[in-house]
Nucleic acid binder design. Structure first.
Lengths: 329, 329
DNA sequence: GAGTTCGAGAAAAACGTTTCAAATTTGAGT
DNA sequence: ACTCAAATTTGAAACGTTTTTCTCGAACTC
């Protein structure tokens, strides 16, 4: 198998293993001629550093974990792309975990990340419980919350103002003349869903909001919600969906049932995924700086890992942006 | 930090470290009373196994690498979900790399995977060059090709018949009465693009195929292709796009230019991503068993890793399925 | 009962790096 | 040339597991 280690390289270059390690980790500590001799040996022998040995001795790895709620959602895909780009630029690998909305799966995934001794974890937590994250932090694993504001000052987070976003969306629906409004959402245990509802209610200023809670936030669930809405109590004037996946499913369900959008019902989603603009009736939505979310979170995390001394924890909050298209015109 | 290792657990349980290791790895070798004593100690001390130490000594890890071409493409997201599910079920972690179509980035990612001593690699190669994969295999890292047929019998692969898919798509367009057909594709260095073109040409049986090659396979590129098609030589009767992302962009570009689909031009995509059905004009497409692709590939890989003795290499080829919707009616 | 087998657990030697103090070389200043 | 400090390199001891060999005693066989 892979018989060539740092030792063989050292021998081949006529130096000690320690020097090879220095070439690998602190090249500036090694004189130019020795360095190039070692580098040549590395190349000739096809040496590949054994990451585990390195991690074991050094006490920390060059990997970060990323735990998302739904890898199938383009929102998270975009975040992932941002994370990947920054991490890979700085020489880190990304260990991806998908919790698929299941708390126990998330727990299992975090255990795997802890076992791998990742340097840090980027997580969109599926619930509020901070205990699991504390356990990671106790082990010296930095944690940055993604798309979730931190409640504590000793914790970095990158989030988007969901209350504001919900308010903007519903205010927009109201300004279009809607009176009765429905909010179609995923599980109300999810903070994003809660906050967007809170924003919606704030925009309504006391007037009632009809809430339809679905178990998932997928196009399929959106379509089911359409049927539910139609069969139970009839259609409202306007519908606010907690994400675009739900909204696209809703749109499909409505059109399928012969409902005109926006003629009979106005519809707005959330996230402004790429496909929102291309749908049957182009979808109004609330845009989030998704890719940027991933980038900034990773920069924060790696800063915390690489410069623990100077690192200042930050809770960053982006503002979402209303995108108006056909579905609310 | 994480001061609690196997040693502390051993002491706390009144056994030797070796026994703790046995509880962890071969529980059946340990008598029931000792085992439960050790398990209790593990729980009480909050012990988490150090994956790197384990990998170092054991010589292999519990991670597999997944290298995809574009994590932003729902096709790969679905594959990833399949991989994740199987891997996580069998106790493996997934190291995700996105090559973003760049050969050099793919190379760098593979190096990282090699350094991490992943047990195996699932890869959708961005080009034909088998040398890089051979280098992995030399290091004892199993490789399974995803969405790419293997040319060699000592190599597992899971693919979908792209020639057949291309042929089916174009045959369908022809049966709809189209005479002149355009093929809008990504870089023709990509096998999938080539094969689908080959299939298209086979369906045409010698009649000419107008090929528009774009640098990327994104909605943006698709929209640009629409402009290009309109400005350069006018519209064909029907358009076959190498994937749905291109097709959705194309659709948008066409509608934007006032072209009616399918009235003026028929349009078919490839992959049948979720959003194809929800687009402005619902999109005909060629469906691939995407999630299944990921699952099967991972099962093959883990079988190769866990039972190297009995493992038989397989080259699996799925058949795609034509999905007819409005855009070709 | 003596001889044998068997199972459970202990002890110690790896695995391939990094790290740190110590040793050596180099170079500048006189 | 000679000294002293700085720069470079060395060598050996970790890091936390797994694995292999060994010991000890109990259970079995005749």
């Amino acid at each position: 198998m892979s018989a060539v280690g740092i030792k063989e390289v050292a021998e081949h270059a006529g130096v000690s293993p320690g020097t090879v390690s220095n070439v690998l980790n602190r090249p500036e500590k090694v004189s130019a001629p020795t360095r190039s001799r070692v580098e040549a040996a590395i190349r000739e022998l096809g040496f590949v550093r054994h990451g585990s040995a390195s991690t074991l001795r050094a006490g920390h790895s060059k990997t970060v974990g990323l735990s998302v709620i739904d890898i199938g959602n383009p929102f998270f895909t975009d975040v992932t792309a941002g994370v990947e780009d920054v991490a890979s630029d700085r020489g880190y690998a990304v260990l991806l975990s998908n919790s698929a909305g299941s708390r126990s799966k998330e727990e299992r995934n975090l255990l795997v990340l802890a076992e791998q001794r990742v340097r840090g974890v980027l997580i969109t937590p599926s619930d509020e419980d901070p205990a699991r994250l504390d356990r990671l932090r106790e082990r010296g694993i930095s944690v940055v919350l993604v798309d979730h504001p931190a409640h504590r000052p000793d914790q970095c987070s990158v989030a988007v103002n969901d209350i504001g976003g919900g308010e903007t969306a519903v205010a927009h629906l109201l300004s279009g003349g809607a009176a009765e409004i429905a909010y179609v959402t995923g599980p109300l245990t999810i903070r994003q869903c809660l906050d967007r509802r809170a924003g919606a209610e704030r925009a309504l200023g006391g007037r009632p909001l009809r809430v339809v809670e679905m178990a998932a936030m997928t196009p399929r669930a959106g379509q089911q919600a359409a049927e539910k809405l139609i069969s139970e109590g009839g259609l409202p004037d306007a519908i606010f969906c907690a994400n675009d996946l739900l909204a696209l499913g809703m749109l499909r369900g409505l059109l399928h049932a012969g409902v005109r959008v926006p003629g009979d019902v106005a519809l707005i989603g959330y996230d402004d995924i790429d496909f929102a603009a291309a749908s049957a009736v182009s979808l109004s939505s609330v845009r989030q700086p998704t890719y940027q979310l991933g980038r900034v979170a990773t920069e924060l995390l790696l800063d915390e890992c690489d410069n623990p001394a100077t690192h200042a924890h930050q809770q960053i909050m982006f503002q979402p942006e209303l995108i108006v298209r056909e579905s609310t015109r």
